[in-house]
């Protein structure tokens, strides 16, 4: 937990000194490795571990996107704030240390979760870029936002496919009518709408940027809101 506290501090102070963002990321990776060694499995179950993984993914994906920007300071500052907020939430949530149920011990589950959170991170990056575009009105920023969404959409779709394969093997059906699945469909349909809408000239720029920001709201509700407020087959 000490490593996580240090990574939180690094993210927080990365607003002043950007190299601390990289230090925070390295510390968080070290924390995940230590958790994996302690548990004997990938630490990807429950809000604590998934929030840590999401934060590390946001920080990691921010690096290539940040370096593609001319004015990268503000972008990295927002990333640092987001990373420190998520890390703070991770620190106050309970760790899931009990052994995994046998049905969760499979490659399909691990890939499903890893890809889902990597896509969430990319949607988060897209939302940050959308916010920066609304401030600066630079087309290159909105182009980057589109790329982040496109790669995130690809990973998210792959995550859904892996989830479907796993559900079929574990429970005999690739689709279950639960709030989590429904919100996952909403998320997928939302970004399907985004990638199609952007083919229209009128929707490029401000409307697409706003959609990218709204999309991350749907991501957050699908991830945290549904799990906290509704009964579902997914713990998180």
């Amino acid at each position: 937990m000490l490593i996580l506290t240090f990574s939180f501090a690094c993210y927080l102070f990365a607003i002043r000194k950007r190299p601390l963002l990289y230090v925070g990321l390295v510390l968080q990776i070290a924390y995940m490795i230590s958790r994996a060694a302690e548990l004997g499995r990938l630490p990807l179950v429950g809000p604590h571990d998934t929030l840590v993984f999401l934060t590390a993914s946001i920080a990691a994906f921010a690096i290539p996107f940040g370096f593609a920007l001319k004015d990268r300071n503000r972008f990295f500052n927002v990333v640092a704030i987001l990373a420190s907020v998520f890390t703070a939430f991770a620190m106050i949530t309970r760790q899931h240390n009990s052994p995994l149920p046998p049905v969760l011990k499979t490659f399909w589950f691990e890939c499903h979760v890893v890809l889902a959170f990597m896509s969430y991170a990319l949607f988060g990056i897209a939302a940050i870029l959308g916010g920066l575009y609304l401030k600066d009105q630079q087309n290159s920023i909105e182009g980057l936002e589109y790329r982040a969404v496109l790669v995130g959409y690809c990973l998210f779709t792959l995550s859904m496919i892996f989830g479907g394969i796993w559900a079929y093997l574990a429970w005999g059906t690739y689709w279950v009518w639960t709030p989590k699945e429904l919100w996952t469909s909403i998320l997928w349909a939302f970004y399907t709408f985004y990638v199609h809408v952007r083919l229209r000239q009128w929707w490029m720029g401000k409307p697409a940027a706003i959609l990218g920001i709204a999309g991350f709201g749907v991501v957050m509700f699908t991830y945290l809101g549904v799990s906290l407020l509704m009964k579902s087959s997914h713990g998180f």
């Binding site: 046998p102 049905v103 011990k105 499979t106 399909w108 796993w166 079929y168 093997l169 574990a170 429970w171 005999g172 059906t173």
Partner: peptide, 13 residues
């Protein structure tokens, strides 16, 4: 676990 018995379109787990 994750290895159902599949027979004639039925998946038993």
């Amino acid at each position: 676990p994750n290895n159902p018995s599949v027979h004639m379109g039925f998946n038993i787990n």
